[in-house]
Design a protein around this nucleic acid. Structure first.
Lengths: 343, 343
DNA sequence: TTGTAAGCGTTATCAT
DNA sequence: ATGATAACGCTTACAA
């Protein structure tokens, strides 16, 4: 009972009584005017019947392309990146491409040999939220010697730089800041991720710029690592320092906001009555905690999808236009007007 | 300026003044006694200098294997699966394998054509937490005609079935149940995921069995989808039905537990004073909410790693022994003795 | 309209 | 100890 080996195009050709070339033409969809309609039909039928599947290795070897893209993300456990992947994979599949993930072990820093042998097996790279030089020497936007590269959520394209697909993070932070200002907050502390990438840098700048325009508004900044415990500690520092306590904590992410809420509660402060807290990313975490977090919704899937489209354009020899996707403030229960100062 | 094309083994051979076969032997690591030490050194040096990388497509074509495994998961956005992937990818990398992800769009149900063209490009499949028949016809544990398959967190291997790597979920649920019993709880409602897979079925059975052994303990079960909102609704049903209210909610996952906590708070019940809530999975969510969740920690990375090891064994012609990985109860603030019955 | 044949880069078999 | 050579399955000139 030896299993029938996987049929090759040659097997299909033999079974259909045609040549291998004809099979390739028909199945490759480039037979218009080169193969007769009936022959094409026969070929397709026998291929179907035999359960023929083209051997991707052979095709890649012949074509010199693999129809595979590499998606480099800092951390897969973050829901945002999982969604970026989903979007990229969807668009890729539509075009017969695959996506392989590379969760950069070094986080956002330069990766030693980011691809290893994978480098030989991919046509292009999509990198999300990485430090500018983390991919040095890897891709160069399509120029000679490097792999075509698209950057997501990164410093917008200077001419000659890799094309980017960005989120309107600055706008998002302007929106939260204005939301807090509109509620009446004037003492705001920015709980910032201590990660040196464009996406985080631009947030601090946006908040600062927005608050600078409002007389009487004072901004403090507290830095911390991107996890709950660090956020909690940082929030405690922010809330128990000398001087007047901030009435709102503006956080770089929902995870940080969750930590901030815990800090507040630990200090006997109620959210949002005594302290407003805002998140960013609008992960499922935002509605898992209590109160639910005012946050900024990011079109993560769309970022991945658009990134993949840009890469495909690049691979087709085109020049993708840089895009910036809008984000949306979602107001929930973690923000409210500041408490009237105690007499 | 035209970039130097990627060097082939032929280029290395020419540069080193040897034949292609010698290069292959040396770089393939099977030159002991077939190539002289100095020659080998030279070859390696020139390969290094030229930056030679074997062409994976060519290798795959020649070898008939791709050194790539497919990991099928119900949902990538769930932190657990992200960690399973990380573990699998780590072990794979150690053995020169790649892992491509397939987040089954249909969740845990049968996937139409789970692999599409990918099927041609992979050596084996690791499937996690899928319904038993979801992969029908895909793999068969290595027998003729199918792809080698390993199942994670699934019905333990019957003879002739695919090998499995399992978590001690039943034991985990026994542990939480005993924890609640030890605290004094007797009216317990199991907030169960309405997903018909082994991993969830076995949980209900474990809880029921454990409670059946305790005189006076009463178990109710409430089913819901695996998201916060559904969990909250289900918990509200459980808590506001007629008859005596349960004093503890034993949930199938941290996500459900988070929803349950919100329900409790919405009904004016304090956790854990008026109601104990337990989670499962011990995601980062467990410590993001307040109070932190008593939960069960799963060695997710190790599941992925062990699954990959099993698949590699399978590919080597071996028969991996089914394994069950231990889990650990983590007691936090969401459980406490039940409130003394109001007089 | 269809068939023949070459070649992608690798590994493995066989000579030498 | 090393080299020539044949295959792996596919696409695509080019020939018929």
């Amino acid at each position: 009972m030896s299993g029938a080996a996987r049929p090759t195009s040659r097997d299909v050709a033999r079974a259909a009584g045609v040549s291998q070339a004809t099979v390739s033409l028909v199945l490759g969809g480039k037979w218009r005017g080169r193969v007769s309609e009936p022959t094409a039909r026969t070929v397709r039928a026998t291929a179907d019947e035999l359960g023929y599947r083209p051997n991707l290795a052979a095709r890649s070897l012949r074509l010199g392309r693999t129809r595979t893209a590499l998606l480099v993300v800092p951390a897969l456990t973050h829901e945002y990146f999982a969604r970026v992947y989903a979007g990229a994979a969807r668009v890729a599949a539509e075009r017969g491409f695959g996506v392989v993930l590379y969760p950069s072990p070094e986080g956002i820093g330069p990766a030693r040999d980011p691809f290893g042998s994978a480098r030989a097996a991919i046509d292009g790279v999509i990198a999300s939220s990485m430090a500018a030089d983390a991919l040095a020497g890897i891709g160069d936007g399509g120029r000679d010697g490097g792999l075509p590269l698209v950057m997501l959520d990164s410093d917008p394209a200077a001419p000659g730089e890799p094309p980017t697909v960005n989120l309107a993070v600055a706008d998002g932070f302007r929106q939260v800041t204005r939301h807090l200002l509109a509620l009446g907050h004037r003492r705001i502390t920015h709980l910032a991720a201590d990660v040196d990438t464009w996406t985080f840098r631009v947030r601090g700048e946006a908040v600062a710029a927005e608050l600078a325009a409002v007389p009487g508004a004072v901004l403090a900044t507290e830095h911390c690592a991107l996890d709950i415990a660090a956020a909690r500690a940082a929030a405690e520092r922010a809330l128990s320092g000398t001087g007047p306590r901030p009435t709102a904590l503006l956080c770089d992410g929902d995870v940080l906001a969750a930590g901030a809420c815990k800090a507040a509660r630990g200090l006997g402060l109620r959210v949002p009555d005594d302290l407003s807290v805002t998140g960013f990313d609008d992960l499922s975490l935002a509605v898992a905690v209590d109160p639910e977090l005012t946050s900024v919704r990011l079109p993560a899937e769309e970022v991945g999808a658009e990134g993949m489209r840009a890469l495909l354009t690049l691979l087709d020899g085109g020049a993708p236009s840089p895009s910036e996707l809008p984000v949306e403030l979602v107001v929930r229960g973690s923000t409210a007007p500041p408490a009237r100062p105690r007499p």
